[in-house]
Structures are given as C-alpha cells and as structure tokens.
C-alpha cells in the first residue's frame, strides 16, 4: 500500500459526487491509500487569480503548508480535480522560481502561523499517479470484467497536461496517458483529437454562448468519432459537458446526447463493481444504456477499415495538358 497526501477539492462533495464515490471504491484494488489533509480550504479555482495575485496564491499556499505539516513519510500530494491540481502546482512553482515572491506568500501565511517550503511537496494529478506510480500492469491485473465493445473518447481537458510545470506528461496537446489506461481496461479507445481542448471553464457562468460553442464542438467530435461516452479526469469538464448539454442543445437547436463519466468510474466497472456503486446514474445524460454494449465475448479483431478514396469522376476526363511538339511553337 502506498500512501499519498490527498487534497479532494470542493467539487468532490457536490457536483463531482460520482468522482468521489468511484475513487473511494478503486483505491483498495489499486493498492493506494489517500490521506486527506485536515481542514483544507478551497483553492479559489480560476476566480481568485483574476482578482488579485498575492491573496490568490496565499489562499492556495495555506493548503500546501497544511500538507507539508502532515507529510509523515510521504511527500506526494494528490489532487483529483484539474483546477485544484494546477493551482497547487502553480503556487509551488511560483514560490520556488521567484524567491522574493515565495517570501511574500510566506509572510502572509505567517499571519496564520503557517509556512511552506517551496518544492518540499510533489504535486500530482490522480491520473498521473494511477498511470505512472500504480502502473498499467497493476491496473490490468485487477480487471475482472473487461470493457470489451465499449467505445470511449478520452477527454482530459486543458489544465492537467498544460502548462505541465514538472514536465510529466507525454505531450501538452495530445498526451497518451488516458488512452493507454482505458485500453488497459479492455475498452475500445476512439481517436479523439480534441482531448485537451477547453470545456469552457467558468464561461458557462459568465459568457454562456462562448461556452456552448466549446461544448458543442467537443460533444459533436466525440459523436463523430463513434464514442459511446466521453471519459474525463476533471469535475469541471464533467459538469460543463453533462449538466449544460441540455441548455447547449436548446441554444443551437441540436439534440446531442453524449454521456460523460470519470475515469475512476469506468475503472471500477472493469474491476467488476456494479455501475451504481461507482456513481453511474448521477449524470444528467444517462450513461447506463451504453453499458449494454459491453460484451462478455472477446470482440474479434476488427478488419482495418477501408479508407474510401474519392473515385474518378464519371464521364470523359479533361484533356491532359501536352507539351508542344518540336517546331509546333508559334510566336
């Protein structure tokens, strides 16, 4: 059992309930223990940074200071939410990179009798821990019900692979980690080029038409790729694409119905857990009907799809340009 410090973040108790339920269900089979930091506070999402810099960083750094106190043998702090992960990592990085700024943040923390030594913690997103610390071999060995026949679109959203302060991800725009994890669960992973495009973030609240265009693109691309559902690693992405899909449809007069669930939920499913035990059914666009596609029979290797090339146009072809014969050139 490896133990990690754990910062859940606010959404795990509300809109991200299915993330929390499924995460709690899969930690034991994965062989990890998450020790929640006592009395953590909200990270301020993307809101506080937009209002004032130092208070925003001080708010986040209080959590780092509490985690540092709780280290006791482990110095890895895990966050399941993308915005929380990025904020914690951003603050650690800013304090380490600019010592004067780090001192200012610590000056503020001292008012609450706290202190954080930059770089004393390693801050990682949950997916990173599952793929690189637990490892895909272990994940594969826990699978009792492979998700054969289920087509999944891997969707990471923007804030985990970018800006990637610690250089952990395979690519800032097209990382392969989530694809590989879903494949290890036996699912069919569709090619989803928008995997790190933004879900609209807080735009659903402050600029809905901007957000709706982004949500529409993502959902439409997943549909075209033939996905039964999207799989995400971020509560904000899940919330925007799931809960605002109806309003987006009303806005564009479309009728998309693309379910989106958390990677921990499909992991639990592949580990043999009941769908409801890992939070299925809480999503507004119900993902359960698609689960009927999971087949107990091995899916035969699909023949590589024939790519249809545009044929020759019917009728006489246009005459080919010809080089003039010698002597034919007229002036």
């Amino acid at each position: 059992m490896s133990e990690y410090l754990y910062y859940p973040g606010c959404s795990m108790d509300s809109s991200g309930r299915s993330y929390r339920d499924s995460l709690e269900a899969v930690t034991a089979p994965l062989g990890i223990t998450l020790r929640e930091i006592d009395d953590w506070n909200c990270c301020g999402a993307t809101e506080y940074l937009g209002l004032s810099r130092l208070p925003a960083y001080a708010l986040i750094a209080r959590n780092l200071a509490l985690a540092e106190q709780a280290r006791n043998g482990t110095n890895t702090l895990v966050a399941p939410c993308s915005a929380c992960f990025l904020n914690l990592s951003k603050t650690n990085h800013a304090m380490a990179e600019d010592a004067a700024f780090g001192a200012q943040v610590n000056d503020a923390l001292a008012a609450g009798d706290l202190h954080y030594d930059p770089d004393s913690l390693r801050i990682r997103h949950l997916l990173d821990v599952v793929v690189r610390e637990v490892g895909l071999e272990t994940v594969r060995s826990r699978v009792t019900r492979p998700l054969r026949g289920l087509k999944l679109a891997p969707y990471l959203g923007c804030m985990v692979p970018r800006p990637d302060y610690d250089g952990r991800w395979s690519d800032p725009e097209h990382p392969s980690e989530l694809d590989r994890l879903l494949a290890a669960l036996g699912a069919e992973v569709v090619d989803y080029p928008l995997k790190t495009e933004c879900c609209g973030g807080h735009m659903t609240q402050i600029g809905p038409s901007t957000a709706f265009s982004m949500i529409r693109r993502l959902v439409d691309a997943a549909e075209r790729a033939g996905a039964d559902m999207m799989v995400t690693i971020c509560p904000m992405c899940q919330m925007n694409i799931d809960a605002f899909q109806g309003e987006m449809n009303a806005h564009f007069h479309t009728s998309h119905r693309m379910p989106i669930v958390f990677f921990t939920q499909v992991m639990g499913l592949a580990f043999g857990m009941a769908p409801e035990a890992v939070g299925f059914g809480r999503e507004l666009v119900d993902a359960r009907p698609a689960l009927a596609r999971i087949s107990d029979e091995p899916v035969p290797e699909a023949e590589p799809a024939r790519v249809r090339r545009p044929g020759r146009p019917k009728g006489p072809a246009l005459p080919m340009p010809q080089m003039p014969e010698a002597g034919e050139v007229t002036r």
Partner: peptide
Amino acid sequence: RSGRMGLTPPRRIRGMRGLKRILARAKALE
C-alpha cells in the same frame, strides 16, 4: 435529485480565523 448539489452551505473550516488573517495580510502586502 441526483445528489450533486446541496442547498445547505458548506461547513465552515475550523481554521477560518487563521485564513482570514492570512488573506488580510496578503491584501495589505499587495
């Protein structure tokens, strides 16, 4: 209905007074 939103506000963190002091200090420094 799906239990993803609660009507009651969250429980206040225990260190609220400390957090307020931290933020006040940060604002003053800024």
